[in-house]
């Protein structure tokens, strides 16, 4: 237990100098695989940071995760297998793009539903109302209105 703690602390101390997002020594030799790794990195959360993907983060944990992702890719996993592996290990928290699942249905469907529902409702309402008069020009001013208007317009010096 103590030994493990010590190793942990050593890791902490080693990590103190600010590391930088993706490091040169992490990059995979196969450009296609590397680009897949980068793509995946952007969808994974660095769990000790505030809303940063592991692709952007300087934290040592992010580096470990980046290396892990590359390891899995090198081992021949597909993108979704890598994600499954990480979710099994760290939970849904690690995904920056929540999965399209039951508990996230509300989140994903909100936009489209609002847009379609709202759009339909608005369209119907405007059409129903406009049917009754958008095309008909308003009735012209009556004589009485005209005189009152003329009185108002000439009365420019009125201290309103």
């Amino acid at each position: 237990m103590r030994r493990m703690m010590a190793a942990f602390v050593a890791l902490l101390l080693l990590a103190l100098p600010a590391a930088h997002a993706v490091q040169p020594d992490e990059i995979m030799s196969d450009p296609a695989k590397e680009s897949r790794a980068r793509e995946l990195s952007r969808e994974l959360r660095c769990m000790v940071c505030q809303n940063q993907s592991i692709d952007d983060s300087d934290a040592p944990l992010a580096r470990d995760l980046r290396l892990l992702v590359r390891e899995r890719i090198a081992a021949g996993d597909s993108n979704s297998q890598v994600l499954d592996f990480l979710v099994a290990r760290y939970g849904d928290f690690v995904l920056l793009k929540p999965r399209f699942e039951r508990q996230n249905l509300l989140l994903w469907m909100l936009g489209p539903v609002l847009l379609l529902g709202g759009g339909l409702a608005l369209w119907l309402q405007i059409r129903r109302r406009s049917g009754s008069g958008a095309d008909v020009p308003p009735p012209p001013l009556t004589a009485d209105e005209k005189t009152r208007l003329a009185a108002l317009m000439s009365d420019d010096s009125k201290p309103s």
Binding site: R45, N51, L96, K97
Partner: peptide
């Protein structure tokens, strides 16, 4: 615990 980030 879940995250909603840039890709979403």
């Amino acid at each position: 615990k879940m995250s909603v980030g840039a890709p979403f």
